[in-house]
Each structure stands twice: as C-alpha cells, then as structure tokens.
Simulated scan of single mutants.
Amino acid sequence: MAVTSVKSQGTRVGFYSLACPRAEFIVRSTVESHFRSDPAVSPGLLRMHFHDCFVQGCDASILVDGPNTEKTTGPNLALRGYEVIDDAKSKLEAACPGVDIPLELHLASSSGTDYTTLLRRTGNGADPSINPAFLPQPRALCPQNGDGTRRVGLDTGSPNRFDSSFFTNLRNGRGILESDQKLWTDASTRTFVERFIGLTGLLTFNVEFGKSMVKMSNTEVKTGNQGEIRKVCSAVS
C-alpha cells in the first residue's frame, strides 16, 4: 500500500488540511463521543499525554504494549483512555488510508474541552486556611487510614466543566489538597489565582491552560525522519 508522506513542521492546527482534511474533526468528535458517556476520559487523556511527554519527549511511547514498556511502570499503571486512541486511530485509517498521522498529539489537544481532575489522596491533614465548615467533607471522602486508591474530585464547584471554579474554591478555603490550598496562601502564587478568578488583572484560565498544553506538546517532538508513525498505536512497526 502506498503511503502518503507529510513533511513534519512540528505541531500546529491544520497541519493535515491537505492530506487528511477531516483529521482534526474525526479526533475531536471521537473524544467528545467518549466524553459524553464517561467524562473522566478527558482528564485521563491529558494525564496520559503528560506522562508520555516527560519521558524522552512526546513520542507516544506510552501507548506501546509489552513487558518492560512505559505502560507497565508503576506511575503509569492507572493511566486510562487507550480505547479512545484506538477508536480515533481506526476512524482515521478508514477516512485517510496511508496518511501518517501522529495521533496522540491531536487527542491531547482535543481533550481540553471539558474535564474533571481526579487524584488519589490519603491521610487526613489540613491546611489552616481551609474553611473549617468544609473540612468534614474531604475528611469523609478520605478518612485517616482509608482506601488510598480512592479517586476524589479536586473541583467541588463544577466537576464536569472546564473553568476556573477550582481557583474560586481556593479563595473560599475549599481546596481538597493542602498543596492546592497553598496556592492561595502563598504570596508567590496567590496573584495568579486572583487573576484567574478576575480579582486582579485579566488572565483567562482556558487560554493560559491551552498555551501550556501547546508548549508541553512540543517537547522533543519527533520530526522529519525521526521515529516512526505506527499503523497500530500499541505496537512498534
């Protein structure tokens, strides 16, 4: 089968506008479809992308199956969203056979529409700035000597929407994690929280988050003849 080569120019919107015009639409609609049935898919993809990029760059090596692979290491065992990648990849292959498309970068950019940040937490410690009236709620979710594998939403205001509610919670002393609440109590970070919730200056969280994701997504990206584009994301060609 002939393969259509696409000269790499890094990551940018519309890169496949000629070789596969519907590529970005296919990926986005696939992510949105999975999100409607399971909102936790989006943060799962973002977390997977983060884990992939910080080990030898954004090369989708996290997707490879087999013993002694990145996927089988301790920090990556709880990653999720592989089924979304497989679904999107199969649809891309059907729509644009033979076109090399590094899928994970597109999935990561599409998954930022809505998400709930989930994190494991153990222990019963509390920052003094946390609202005393709020403390019974996180303590009930994460009792001392409780189940350390339980997942707890960090945004109690709008868990299934991508917005700045998380930062408003910090101002009101409703941070789930002590490390999160310190973003409000520490003078070096409080300014950013205030700007995200509109108290001082103007700093749109969605825009800034997008910028940070784009910056991370370009970490040691394979270009030109570097690396390979896999027909099956979980197997080396």
Rank of each mutant, 00 (worst) to 15 (best):
residue 4 T to E: 11
residue 6 V to M: 13
residue 8 S to M: 05
residue 8 S to D: 15
residue 14 G to S: 11
residue 16 Y to M: 13
residue 18 L to E: 15
residue 18 L to S: 15
residue 22 R to S: 14
residue 25 F to G: 03
residue 26 I to R: 08
residue 27 V to T: 09
residue 27 V to Q: 09
residue 29 S to C: 03
residue 30 T to C: 08
residue 33 S to A: 14
residue 34 H to V: 05
residue 39 P to V: 04
residue 44 G to R: 02
residue 48 M to Y: 03
residue 50 F to H: 15
residue 51 H to W: 03
residue 58 C to F: 02
residue 58 C to M: 08
residue 60 A to V: 00
residue 61 S to Y: 06
residue 61 S to M: 08
residue 63 L to T: 01
residue 63 L to Y: 08
residue 66 G to T: 10
residue 67 P to Q: 06
residue 68 N to T: 05
residue 72 T to W: 04
residue 72 T to C: 09
residue 73 T to W: 12
residue 76 N to C: 09
residue 79 L to C: 02
residue 80 R to V: 12
residue 81 G to E: 06
residue 82 Y to A: 03
residue 84 V to C: 09
residue 93 E to G: 06
residue 94 A to Y: 12
residue 99 V to F: 07
residue 111 S to C: 15
residue 112 G to W: 07
residue 124 N to L: 01
residue 129 S to I: 04
residue 133 A to Y: 00
residue 137 Q to F: 05
residue 138 P to N: 04
residue 140 A to M: 01
residue 141 L to V: 02
residue 142 C to V: 11
residue 144 Q to G: 06
residue 147 D to A: 07
residue 152 V to Q: 12
residue 156 T to V: 01
residue 158 S to P: 03
residue 161 R to S: 06
residue 164 S to K: 00
residue 168 T to Y: 07
residue 171 R to P: 00
residue 176 I to K: 10
residue 181 Q to M: 03
residue 183 L to F: 07
residue 184 W to L: 05
residue 184 W to K: 09
residue 188 S to Y: 08
residue 190 R to M: 07
residue 192 F to V: 02
residue 196 F to L: 00
residue 200 T to F: 03
residue 201 G to H: 11
residue 203 L to E: 09
residue 206 N to T: 05
residue 208 E to H: 13
residue 209 F to G: 00
residue 213 M to T: 11
residue 216 M to Y: 07
residue 219 T to A: 12
residue 221 V to P: 04
residue 224 G to M: 03
residue 226 Q to G: 07
residue 228 E to K: 08
residue 229 I to N: 14
residue 231 K to P: 07
residue 232 V to T: 12
residue 233 C to Q: 06
